[in-house]
Design a protein around this nucleic acid. Structure first.
Length: 121
DNA sequence: GACCTGACGCCCC
DNA sequence: AGGGGCGCCAGGT
């Protein structure tokens, strides 16, 4: 048997992981935000970095992912430069009634939404 | 294959 | 109370 680790299901698992991240992201209510860590925590899979990595590729998904509702734990729009325009993330959040000052969500404590708050799932 | 670099976050000053 | 160290895990060079 080949000692080489050709793992065909690795890509499958990767896609599945992507899908899990996208699913949770879609559940974030408009007007609220969640964090990379909270999503990784809820999935009990991967790390916060991997959530960011997955969201970085969300453009390759056919569905529209509200990735702008995911910020880092301090409420900073750390992913804003990865959107079509550098201001798009902030514009979308503001259009949902979220106030942002200096690339940071104001009242992060009130607006933070953890997936575990979801009753069903 | 070592080394760097992230859309991160906890721990420890 | 803000900043650095380090673990995280996958990709790129």
């Amino acid at each position: 048997m080949p000692t080489k680790k050709i793992s065909p299901d690795k890509d499958v698992k990767k896609d599945h992981y992507f899908q899990r991240v996208y699913d949770v992201t879609r559940l974030i209510p408009s007007g609220k935000v969640s964090t990379y860590g909270a999503i990784a925590d809820f999935l009990a899979l991967g790390s916060a970095r991997m959530v960011g990595w997955a969201l970085n590729h969300c453009h390759s998904s056919d569905d529209i992912i509200p990735a702008h509702r995911v910020v880092n734990r301090l409420g900073e729009l750390s992913g804003r430069l990865h959107f079509a325009t550098p201001t798009l993330m902030q514009e979308r959040l503001e259009s949902e009634g979220i106030e942002i000052i200096d690339h940071k969500v104001v009242k992060m404590n009130e607006l933070f939404w953890h997936p575990r708050e979801l009753e069903e799932y």
